[in-house]
Design a protein around this nucleic acid. Structure first.
Length: 244
DNA sequence: CCCCAGTCCTGCGGGC
DNA sequence: TGCCCGCAGGACTGGG
């Protein structure tokens, strides 16, 4: 399931789209139910076509495309979504396609087996409302040890549950929470309030170690084969899993 | 503030 | 080879 390392790998993989101008966007025809595109496909198309992609970004587990004029396209892969610049794992679950003005540029594809993901075009105001600090906590790779400590010690929830809360820190999901707590030698059921400063520091260090290592290995491709990088190749961090 | 169950959707594998 | 069902656990919502 795409968590921070997988979405960061997707982001790096689609970097070639920066500087390109969007020529066409379309849902692709599939036998499965279409994914959610917001706003309507008509409005989405009007606001996206002709715009240049100025940068890519990531907010937690979401991939961001910054468009000229200030609008942003947010790709939220949820369980099984994939952003690709190459052939998808199969044609049947290809959901969305973005083509560029230069004919030689390969299209940006969105593939999603379960179809729980969504693609949303927002202006900067809506972006801040939906993905600002109120809704999404500090990135798990950006948060300071002190901030993580105070946030963990402020909750009565189990530390693993707390780490899955994207308002506490963004980007950690079930897989990496399991891995990083094991590396930190903290039992997942420990209550946040009961953690010492030293234990929080271990969690902070383990978070960085695990997530950075996972990015180096281009994420985890599980036995279901769902997650792949932007070129439809397997990640390799699954070979280094300790407990998941 | 927190927790839990339910919802979205599809494919897979266990049990029979 | 075939059905039924639980499961994967990301984000969100409604009720307690």
């Amino acid at each position: 399931m795409p968590e921070l390392p997988e979405v960061e790998t997707m982001r790096r993989g689609v970097e070639p789209v920066v500087g390109r101008r969007i020529a066409k966007v379309a849902r692709t025809r599939t036998k499965v139910k279409p994914i959610q595109i917001t706003p309507s496909m008509r409005t989405f198309t009007r606001r996206a076509v002709g715009k240049k992609i100025e940068a890519t970004g990531r907010v937690g587990k979401r991939l961001i495309l910054h468009l000229s004029g200030g609008d942003r396209i947010v790709i939220e892969p949820r369980m099984t979504g994939l952003a690709l610049l190459a052939d998808p794992p199969d044609r049947g679950h290809l959901r969305f396609r973005m083509e560029f003005e230069s004919p030689g540029d390969s299209p940006l594809l969105y593939w999603d087996r379960r179809g729980l993901g969504l693609i949303r075009l927002v202006d900067s105001k809506e972006f801040d409302e939906r993905y600002g600090p109120e809704k999404v906590g500090p990135d798990a790779l950006m948060i300071s040890a002190g901030d993580l400590q105070s946030r963990l010690q402020a909750t009565r929830r189990a530390v693993k549950v707390a780490l899955l809360d994207q308002r506490l820190t963004a980007g950690v999901g079930n897989l990496y929470a399991s891995e990083l707590l094991h590396v930190a030698r903290i039992h997942p059921a420990r209550i946040g309030k009961g953690l010492s400063r030293l234990e929080c520091a271990r969690i902070h260090a383990a978070t960085r170690e695990v997530l950075l290592d996972a990015i180096d290995h281009e994420g985890s491709t599980l036995s279901d084969g769902t997650y792949r990088n932007a070129l439809n190749q397997d990640g390799s961090y699954q070979n280094l899993h300790r407990v998941y």
